[in-house]
Design a protein around this nucleic acid. Structure first.
Lengths: 130, 130
DNA sequence: CTTGCCCCTGACGCGCGGGGCAGGGGTTAG
DNA sequence: CTAACCCCTGCCCCGCGCGTCAGGGGCAAG
């Protein structure tokens, strides 16, 4: 099994890079991992799961800061025993609902802004709106 | 009349700051202005007009680089004799059509991306789309 | 033992439109 | 003449999610 792995393997298993893992650690999304005697990081499979969750949430538009403020909840999502989540496509609405709602509002505002911009811009070309 | 003015007055007349005018100059949106013997920049009213045009185009979402690549055309728009433009709300479609079309495409892509993101995010809250 | 890949920390880069500050000199009203 | 502004250049700062060196050390196979 994939017991203990070094940062490169863990990152590959999670679909990202060593740089990203160190970055998440620095920003508090990942706990400081065990180190070998020589100072190299060692990760278990639960960290890979957690990184996957982090990346899924980031891909949904949440920010690193959003996740850092809820990093203790990421623990729950990454743990083995399912607590009404842990399956792909469900990240625990109760836990992330507030921050997701905030992101939704921000997205709506941004979409509205860009749409207004697009319309203003189209007005100067002679109405090209399909 | 407002013959020759220093950077602070010119910036205020154009609705911006001295810092912005120096920045536009450095990026090639404004020609290097006349200097006094002591090295202070002096602007005429045509520069104020030109800065207004620049800010209008930036507000429409064009980038500084877009404008820099067409800076010679900004001259025409800022000149006194009207050449089928020079009025508010019309910035010369023939001149800026290519770059505006490019921006429109970029805006559409971005709007689509954010809309997809919004929908993916909404799916995780239990359908809140109004 | 060597070779070649992996890992470490620390610091800078990016894109964008400027903001802010430091340290110096100009200008003008009283 | 002096105070109170204004202007000059040059430099670092912002947000965000990392990428990319630079300069060193570790680790397993041959």
């Amino acid at each position: 099994m994939a017991g203990r792995m070094r940062i490169g393997d863990a990152a590959a298993a999670a679909g990202t890079t060593p740089r990203a893992l160190r970055f998440y650690e620095q920003r508090g999304l990942l706990p400081p991992p065990v180190r070998t005697a020589a100072g190299q990081r060692e990760y278990g499979p639960e960290t890979v799961t957690r990184v996957r969750v982090i990346r899924a949430l980031l891909a949904l538009g949440l920010t690193v800061e959003d996740l850092a403020s809820r990093s203790h909840r990421l623990d729950l999502l990454a743990s083995d025993p399912p607590r009404s989540c842990a399956s792909e496509g469900d990240f625990g609405p109760d836990t992330f609902a507030p921050v997701i709602a905030q992101r939704l509002a921000a997205l709506d505002a941004e979409i509205a802004r860009l749409t207004r911009l697009r319309e203003a811009l189209a007005r100067h070309t002679g109405a090209v709106v399909p």
